[in-house]
Nucleic acid binder design. Structure first.
Lengths: 170, 170
DNA sequence: TTGGAATGTCAACAACACTGACGTATTATT
DNA sequence: AATAATACGTCAGTGTTGTTGACATTCCAA
């Protein structure tokens, strides 16, 4: 029941993968993602923000001066959904919303000092766990980790990921 | 700003990790998780179910006859939240709810044939992407992937993960 | 028999996503 | 100059998923 489905593929040089291995990976993703968000969630709960606020802060920090449309595409949500979050962040003085110079329809988003402080607190909480996991697992494991994650992304989302990694690095 | 924080730790034999590497891992998790859930989400949307239904079906499939309390701990939600999901699954004839024999307070949960069909459809959709990612990345990468994910889990959640992987495997 | 554990249910609420519609600038196109 | 398209914001409604709190029931065990 767990075995015997892709032996022929093996002869074509493909990795042999049991249902068991795949299921294990699926459950690992589920449980690990819970750990991944747990620490920032605790900080956010104190300030009555949610994960959506964290994501917005993160990507505005990563791409200062980004536009609303840009952020929309990266986060993969509707403008109504993002707007709710952005509005509170702007009202609370964590994010700046400036009219574009070349194109006045656009709004450029930047973190204020207070916004950068919160972003940094959230980022540190998440990075601490990540660093600890990386060190437990070792350098080779980290490389494999990222390789598999990248292969799991939707092609369209992967472009956003690579654009962040490659381009506009300050 | 991205550099120079843990050079001293390096001499103690610890992995040297830049903020950039950590941030990349964080973003990889974010984008990959979206891909991870995208395929089952499409199937669920057709049947007007959500991810919570998927998770319940998955873990009932994994541990047939599990109790509500057990499932609660694995999923990490409140009984009220799980109850709403279970109720619809039971009403729709996807899950069986049987009073325990030894302890009649407990309810043992099992998938019906229809429930197993849906679980299998969801599982296959998710596994297909996983398999493709695993093959793109290679066997070593897969090993590293799981190692890092396991290191990221909360210890309490990791027990659930290991219990599933190790025990009650028929 | 009393206390506690397991389960279920009701109600209220909040976060976060969605759709659809509408308005207002601003820019681009014809 | 008129028209279309773009970027953004907002209002209203809906759905899923999570949370608390309160309360009833059933059953086990001391």
């Amino acid at each position: 029941m767990t075995q015997g489905q892709s032996r022929s593929e093996n002869t074509r040089g493909l990795l042999f993968l049991t249902d068991e291995q795949l299921r294990k990976g699926i459950e690992a993703m589920f449980f690990a993602y819970r750990g991944f968000t747990a620490d920032p969630d605790r900080i956010l709960a104190e300030k009555s923000y949610g994960r959506a606020h964290h994501r917005a802060l993160h990507f505005i920090h990563r791409s200062p001066g980004t536009t609303v449309n840009n952020l929309l595409a990266t986060l993969g949500v509707t403008k109504q959904s993002l707007n709710r979050v952005l509005r509170t962040l702007i009202e609370d003085g964590l994010v700046l919303n400036e009219v574009g110079i070349r194109d006045k329809r656009e709004r450029h988003l930047t973190l204020t000092d207070a916004g950068a402080d919160l972003e940094s607190a959230l980022s540190n909480a998440q990075s601490d766990r990540m660093r600890s996991a990386y060190r437990q697992a070792g350098a080779d494991a980290v490389y494999g980790f990222c390789t598999v994650l990248e292969a799991m992304m939707d092609p369209e989302l992967k472009e956003h990921y690579e654009h962040l990694t490659g381009g506009e690095q300050q």
